[in-house]
Design a protein around this nucleic acid. Sequence first.
RNA 1: UGGGGCGUCGCCAAGCGGUAAGGCACAGGGUUUUGAUCCCUGCAUACCCAGGUUCGAAUCCUGGCGCCCCAGCCA
Length: 565
Amino acid sequence: MTNTEVPTPSNFIRNIIDADLKANKNEGRVHTRFPPEPNGYLHIGHAKSICLNFGIALDYQGQCNLRFDDTNPHKENIEYVEAIKQDVRWLGFDWEDRLYFASDYFQQLYDYAVALIKKGKAYVCDLTADQIREYRGTLTEPGKDSPYRERPVEENLDLFGRMRAGEFPDGSRVLRARIDMASPNMNMRDPTIYRIRHGIVHHQTGEQWCIYPMYDFTHCLSDAIEGITHSLCTLEFEDHRPLYDWFLDELETPCHPRQIEFSRLSLQYTVTSKRKLTELVEEGYVHGWDDPRMPTIAGLRRRGYTPASIRDFCERIGVTKADNMVEMGVLESCIREDLDRHAPRRMAVLHPLKIVIENYPEGRVEELEAANHPKDEAMGRRKLPFCREIYIDANDFREQAPRKYKRLVTGGEVRLRNAYVIRCDEVIKDGHGEIIELRCSYDPATLGANPEGRKVKGVIHWVSAHHGLHAEVRLYDRLFNHPTPDAAKDGKDFKEHLNPDSLHTLTRCFVEPGLAGAAPGARFQFEREGYFCVDTEDSAGGKLVFNRIVGLRDTWAKIENQQRG
RNA sequence: UGGGGCGUCGCCAAGCGGUAAGGCACAGGGUUUUGAUCCCUGCAUACCCAGGUUCGAAUCCUGGCGCCCCAGCCA
């Protein structure tokens, strides 16, 4: 190993796989799968699972399937399957020709159910949903047997066949596994494995079926059918593992995959629950699944996050069984690291303040040169028009300088990035005392050279008032103002923790002229501000719209806050 | 009061009986025409607590404590 190589991450799942390989299990194969239900968009928590499953397959020269767990047509939708495929692909993973649907196996699953009935290990139950719940018992008391539990095999076979044939209405009967109503594990108390659902057009199987298998029955068998070796899922399925194993032990299947559970990802100041994200979209709290404030893959993509940064994030947070709550700073650090290296630099003024350089000849325009990246010559250089009138950011000027302030102040000097040193001679205000313009003078000897006999500490960015382009800039902040909006322990609904200032739209920004026609999705660093990308939806037809991906680390803001507090 | 898990730095997380990796964050310093980046330096005598085994314990044993999950014909 050379020292530039990144060591492959170590985690308990890889340790288990290593041990299995050493013990010669599965003929040395490693085969995983990512099994989303197409009932919503993927979020950052799914990214963790995708990176884990596909990442392991890659590192162990194995394979990873994409399998849609589509057993509940009531909630599922073809729009979601397309979006999920796009997201997985965008993250950089390839399922090759192994795109599967649990619904591909409906006939096999049905046959397995029949086999179970024949073994006396499943029965048709006529209890209502409410009755089943009553019979199930509680966490501390055992349940009691259904009156239909002793139904003869022949009758079960007949009834199950008629369930499939559509003879019975929704909710009238279910097929149940016959296990143990007194089990301390609720999942083993004769779980339902098939239910009747009429009048639903399944996105894959249409109206072929009116009975649909449940997750516990479907998942383990789908895994076995596909020859999965390691079935990775989240912690809440740990209690289901005995049931996962029970079906595979009772039935004759091609193999018996090993289920391993890891903890889900929680990220501060957001929610990672499909149900809650759906709520935000459907009730209009955000502008859709791809709203740049959403922790969805689609949202992160539109915000400007790169696939590599998300993969890096998933690697940094690790995989364990411990409950965790990851700080946003980790995600932000990942995208900053990627973009610092790869994003070309540009200048953009977000809060324009006009400057007239009085000793600069009227009508004169200079073409100044600037590097596209301070450390990467290969990214080239660009021309910047400079003239008598420019814009700087209003935050870069103060009439009175606070302590440690090193930007432009009345009577003081500052360096214009990639240009000259200027001095502020006069402040022009309107009738309300608002600063509307600055009169300055420049030092012609300071282009690419330090001024004579004095030090100028500050450097600020600018855009030519005559050449700058109008742009809209959207500044995003955290979606919620509570670190754990859905677990605040204050009795409030998570939506009450929504941050009202999560979006600020600046409509009168100026960007350097070279940004004309910037490609949708293109990412830049606006120097001294942050990383921005051209919005893929709204930036078109000459209208420039930029999303702020993340700000630059801001030590000055920290100092200012300390001075204030 | 049933069952299943988890507890190592502010947040993640390695560690698998031989004397606490790493990342983020934070604090200090250096370079810098981005208060960015980059580069140094510091940051758990300590692994939920209490006992025990051992020459030696975050790792093994016993007993506590705390937190999470489970009573869908959802996944």
